[in-house]
Amino acid sequence: MAAKSANLYARIEPEVKEQAEGILSALGIPASNAINMFYKQIILHRGLPFEVKIPSARPLDMGTLSEEQINEELEKGYADMKDGRTKPASKVFADIRKNYYL
């Protein structure tokens, strides 16, 4: 008779584990179920279920910007909003749900 479960031991950075488990808890998903879902996605995709690459542009670290640089970034965002280069949050979340089957 085959075992119904197997143990997995992995080392995880404590902060990463805490943040991920907080999100999973809010979603009502135990960590073991999330890991099982991840493994099933690896099987379905025959590899990692997401792209693994170095991003071409890094996100801004606001903590490293001067007040002048922060104001420049805010001005860019304001200009995007005025020129219609933004989407309402409800549209963005609807697209995410549609594209990722949530």
Rank of each mutant, 00 (worst) to 15 (best):
I35V: 15
N99Y: 12
R11H: 06
E68Y: 07
K53H: 10
S5L: 05
S66E: 04
A6K: 14
G63C: 02
L27T: 00
I96M: 10
I54P: 00
S56G: 09
A10C: 10
I29K: 10
S90L: 09
G22I: 01
N36A: 13
L60I: 15
A89G: 03
A31Q: 08
E51G: 02
I42W: 04
V16F: 14
E72Q: 11
M37C: 06
S66Y: 05
H45R: 13
S5W: 06
I54C: 02
P14N: 03
G22D: 07
P30I: 02
A94T: 08
E67K: 12
M81N: 10
S66D: 05
I96H: 05
A79D: 13
S66F: 03
N99T: 10
D61M: 03
I96Q: 04
R97S: 04
A2T: 10
K91W: 08
I43H: 04
G84M: 02
I35D: 00
Q41P: 00
S32L: 03
N99F: 08
E75Y: 08
P30K: 04
R11Y: 09
R46F: 02
F50N: 00
E13F: 04
E15C: 06
Q41K: 14
A10G: 02
V16H: 07
S56W: 02
A26T: 08
E72C: 03
Q19D: 14
G77L: 14
L8R: 08
S90K: 13
N33L: 13
K91L: 12
P59E: 04
E68F: 05
P14A: 07
G84I: 01
P88D: 10
N71P: 00
S90N: 08
F93C: 02
Y78V: 06
E15T: 14
F38C: 04
S90Y: 07
P55R: 11
I29V: 14
G63I: 01
G47W: 00
K53D: 06
A34V: 02
L48K: 09
K17F: 09
A57E: 11
S25P: 00
K98P: 00
P55D: 05
E51K: 15
Y101K: 13
R46L: 02
K4F: 09
G28D: 01
I96T: 04
R58G: 05
I12C: 13
L65F: 12
R46G: 11
N36M: 06
K87N: 06
A3M: 07
P49N: 02
L102N: 10
K82M: 15
N7M: 10
S5N: 07
H45M: 07
P30Y: 00
V16P: 00
S32H: 14
Q19K: 15
E68R: 10
K87I: 04
P49L: 01
P88Y: 11
P14T: 03
Q19R: 15
L60Q: 05
A2I: 11
F93S: 04
Q19V: 12
A2G: 07
